[in-house]
Design a protein around this nucleic acid. Sequence first.
DNA 1: TGATATCATATTAGAAAAGTAGGATATAAA
DNA 2: TTTATATCCTACTTTTCTAATATGATATCA
Lengths: 139, 139
Amino acid sequence: MFQISTRLRYGLRALTYLSTNGGSGTVSLHEISKNEGISRKYLENIFKLLKKSKITRSVRGREGGYALIKKPEEIGLYEIATALEGKVSLLECIDEKGLCENSSECGVRDFWSDYQDYVKKYMLNLSLADIIEKYYKKI
Amino acid sequence: MFQISTRLRYGLRALTYLSTNGGSGTVSLHEISKNEGISRKYLENIFKLLKKSKITRSVRGREGGYALIKKPEEIGLYEIATALEGKVSLLECIDEKGLCENSSECGVRDFWSDYQDYVKKYMLNLSLADIIEKYYKKI
DNA sequence: TGATATCATATTAGAAAAGTAGGATATAAA
DNA sequence: TTTATATCCTACTTTTCTAATATGATATCA
């Protein structure tokens, strides 16, 4: 439960790599793949999403690669998570009320809604820089 | 992301129903099914797990059904969640360190570990009674 | 021109979740 | 004692999602 997807874990690792090894230029997926042990093809999928969400930019062709658009301080974990996970809909039952006429769903739904806010809060308060600072750089 | 499984959502609804409509006796899955709009067969799967985790007891035969073993105040949400979701392993990569020699995984792993604790805390501090009190009974 | 990138689309493989099927067993009411 | 109504048990199907791969087009610099 509360499972974090491989895509998000890999994505976060790739972004920390980009932050700490990218400097001002770009980093190729080949390099990230080599150093993080993640399939280059899979990284392509991930970075397609990150680019779409305007977290990274890309340079094509030889010597190309990816770079962060914003500073790590300005990139929130929630932003990264939504970029890679997509839907935030914890509660689809909100739309299909038809089946819940006589049920206690409404109350429980509110509960899950609060739970989601709680989780969201954690993610909103953390930037990529925070994560690197607190967890990654303590070598 | 952070998706709550249908099994857990249904299970929680069924338990709130049991708490508020059960009284001192048992409630049949047929009744819960009818009032909550959940397949009786699916409820069987759920209650098999709840019984296994000693959250509910059962009475077989006619006029039988399920009842809570403990008081709602003594049943924690985390207990319910683990009963229905099973494994709590957010981070399987801890066991398979082989692939992560040269990576930044270690730092990121600590981060996810903290995240898990944060989520867990929320669940540990809530009882079934709390949920009913706060969300369900506000008619 | 060639090497090295991203980009685009599509497919596959596998696991997990959601839900179903059919019958065995127990029990109280009729 | 029969019958209706429960849980119990094992297994199956169906669907959905994730993870990962395949193939080739396109761009760009040395």
